[in-house]
Every structure is written in C-alpha cells, then in structure tokens.
Write a protein that binds this DNA or RNA. Structure first.
Lengths: 229, 229
DNA sequence: AGCATTTTATAAAATTTTTATAATCTGACT
DNA sequence: AGTCAGATTATAAAAATTTTATAAAATGCT
C-alpha cells in the first residue's frame, strides 16, 4: 500500500483530495501547517507528497528544497497562481509536477498514479523487490529458488542457481571468472576456474535459445562474463 | 554530454527545437518518420526522447509503448490536440511529460532539463555511474566494459578497451609506446612495441570518423600518442 | 545408485603478436 | 623552396598464442 502526504492549509481541499486518493487505494495523511508538514515528511516514510505553495509556518519552496536534500520521492506542487508555478519551475528545486488550482481531484489521482508508476519503474525495480529478479524473459525467484524462462520453469542445481542469480543481480557488470569463483564458491578456495566455465555452459543450455549466440550471458573475451540487459 | 532524439515530421519545428537544445549543450538527432525514429531509439543510446504523436510510418502511441518495453529513459510526448494529450495520459503508456503545440522552445528546454535532472537523481544515484568516462562523443563504461561512440555501441577486445580507457583517463597526456606497453601489458614484459601501434589502429577504426585525421587519439611524432580533449 | 560438481582433454573461436610493406614525417642539404 | 635519405608510423595480412566451448570422465555427496 502506498502512502501519500498532503501538505495543504485549506482543509476542505485537503479532505477532498484525501477522499479521492483513498478511493484509489492510497493511504493518506494530511498536515495543515508547513513546519509540521516538513517534520512529518522527514520522520515518516511516504511514497509521494502533494505540497501546497502558500502555507502557514513555512512556505512550499523551503519545504520542497529541504525534502529534496534528503529524499528522492515524487513531489507534486500545487498553487493558486499560475505565475507562481512558472517561478518554481524556473527555480528548479526538484519538484516532479506542478498543478494550478482549481483542478479536478481525478486529475490529481491520475498524476499521482503516473508519478508512482515512474518512480517504481526507475527505482523500485532496482532497489525494492529483492525477492524476484525479472529481466526480459527470465524470472528468478530467490526465496523459492526457481527460474522461469519465458514462462516455463527450468530446473537449476544449487551452484547454477547461485551463479545465475549473482550475474542477474548485477546486470551489465563484467566479472572475471576469478571474481565469480570467489563470489559463489568459498572466498579463498583454490579450485579450478574451469568449473565456472562449465557452469556457465550449463546455465546457457537452460536459458539461451541458441547457446552459440547468447542473449543473456555474454562472454567478454579475455575478461569474463556479464549478464546483458 | 547528453543526447536527445527528436521524432517529429514537421522539419521546421524539429529544427527549431534542435537549435534551442543545442544552445543548451545537448547533442540532438532528428528523425522524421515514426518507424525510423523507433529504430534509432532502439539501436542507439539517448538520454531523452521528444516524441510527436502524429507521424508517418508509425504513430507515437506505438513508439512510446515499444520504447518503454526496453528502456526507462524520459519521453516527452508532443501533440497538436489537447484531447490527444488527455487520451495518452489516460492510456498510461509511460510517457513522462506531455506538451501541446504550439509551445515555446525555451519551455521545451526547461522541461528537458527537469526530466534529465530527475532521471539522474533517481537512477544515477542508485546505479552509481561513477565509473563512466565521457569525452565528447565517446562514453566508456568501465564496469560494463562497453564503449559508445555517438550513442552507438562498438565492440572492443580486451587490450583495445584497456588501452583506450587508459588514454581517455589521462586526456592530453602524451605517452610513449613503451609507457603504454608497460601500463597495459605486463610491467616488465619486453615484447615488441609494434603491437601498441596495431592496437591504436584498431581503436581508431572504431572511434574515429576519418582514421587519417584522428579527432581523439593523436599521434605525436617521434614520441607517442595522446587522447586529445 | 543417482545426481551434482569438478576435473581433464580436445576442439573451436577469438585475440594478440609478428611480419612485411606502404605511407608519412622530419631535418639536412642543395 | 624543393628534394632526398633516414626514421617513424600506418596498414594489411599471416602466424602464433591465448581463451573459451564442449564433451566426457572422474570424483564426491546424500
């Protein structure tokens, strides 16, 4: 469930926004003063903030700047004056969107959704879902230790799974066989690096359409391997 | 330097946008047809796309969807009809911004900058792109060991990559072939210096427009080479 | 035994180095 | 200034080396 913070002094407006957002399944908090709003934004976790410009206690400019110093979450700025909007945009203080009052609550909902979706697309995919890695046709469920290739489950042995997972968790990064060996096997074990090659081959047999032209695990000649994205 | 792709069939508009963006230090490519635009977007690396809705070859909806399947970069959609804008927004196909024609070029520039800044804020920070060397049209990603020349990826072998990277990391510094050899090959190996020459040639074939008039790796006669900046 | 893992041997592929030759530059000498 | 010799670099292609892919056998584990 996503949490939204509305910092807005006109209670009627704030309540209306809250109603609409809650109908769309969001959890909403309201603060009526600027200073309280900032304090709340900093001390709790929200997924998006709707921020009015004119506020008692502390104005929206200041709040936006302060939040941005600490957090990357989407901020939608709201103002009654079109001129103010242009001004903030010019200041470039990192708000993600700007709306002029009056606006329809459903437009707010639409924008909120769009910003959340983008944020997830950019950040959520890399940071959050640590359990499931999904890259193109491949889906790796870490806790269940299962791998699906184009919707079909393939059986992986322990080492194969660990190796594939490690590569997929660091897409595009090239690792030498030594690095992979140290990572998957024991840190200092002095086994033969050739076993990495063999495991790569086994993995490719399971995930690649044509093992000679790998789409996922690429060989970097003289260096190592990488999971291409 | 950031690269922007404009997909727009009205050449006058495209050129105007290009001029303004270039004045702000962006590198701009234009495509006049939808299908060509998509093809370019997929085969090269851009940091942002400005996409018109009505296009010959393939419409903006389709293009936006296709790009989103593969890439996360910001897309600004442009249309002459306000209604269309609402429609696309409703479709939620992942565009990052919407502008109605006519608009002032400076507003486009402002929005482009804002989107770039956000993208950097969200992605650049999490992905830690601090091992990327960028000089004029060349971008070297050290961990991924990839080289982009004007947005197009070129395949480099191990030694070629190491040599180019070393030179690019010390721009303008002139190195003798002996120094380069000691640096890239084993410190004391007494192999033939000629191999450095050959590798320089191979690199030039990949990054220089005209190998006879090198723009990047310059020959200092009787001394060695340097990466010119 | 049955499966996973590692080792080994050989084939195949790609890169690196060498070699030979052509082109270009520099400085000295007319 | 023009030209020539010597030195240096560019280019192309062949040879050598290195690295990886593959298959199969050996080992180890439960």
């Amino acid at each position: 469930m996503s949490r939204i913070l509305i910092i807005e002094d006109e209670e009627a407006i704030a309540d209306l926004e809250k109603d609409y957002l809650e109908l769309s399944g969001f959890e909403v908090e309201i603060r009526n003063r600027g200073d309280e709003g900032l304090q709340t934004a900093m001390s709790q976790e929200f997924d998006l903030i709707v921020l009015d410009l004119m506020l008692p206690g502390m104005d929206g400019f200041e709040i936006c700047k302060k939040i941005r110093e600490e957090k990357n979450i989407p901020i939608i700025m709201v103002s009654a004056k079109k001129d103010d909007i242009d001004k903030i945009r010019g200041l470039g203080l990192g708000a993600d969107d700007y709306m002029t009052k009056p606006f329809s609550p459903s437009e707010l909902v639409a924008r909120v959704k769009a910003h959340m979706a983008r944020y997830d697309r950019l950040v959520g995919s890399t940071q959050k879902n640590n359990d499931i890695i999904e890259i193109r046709g491949i889906r790796i469920d870490k806790t269940a230790r299962r791998v699906m290739v184009d919707g079909v489950e393939k059986a992986f042995t322990g080492k194969e799974f660990d190796l594939l997972t490690f590569l997929a968790e660091h897409p595009n990064h090239v690792y030498t066989k030594e690095e992979l060996f140290r990572e998957i096997w024991d840190m200092d074990s002095i086994g033969d690096i050739a076993t990495v090659t063999v495991h790569i081959k086994k993995i490719r047999e399971k995930i690649e359409y044509d093992s000679a032209k790998p789409q996922y695990i690429e060989t970097i000649w003289g260096v190592g391997y990488r999971f291409k994205v």
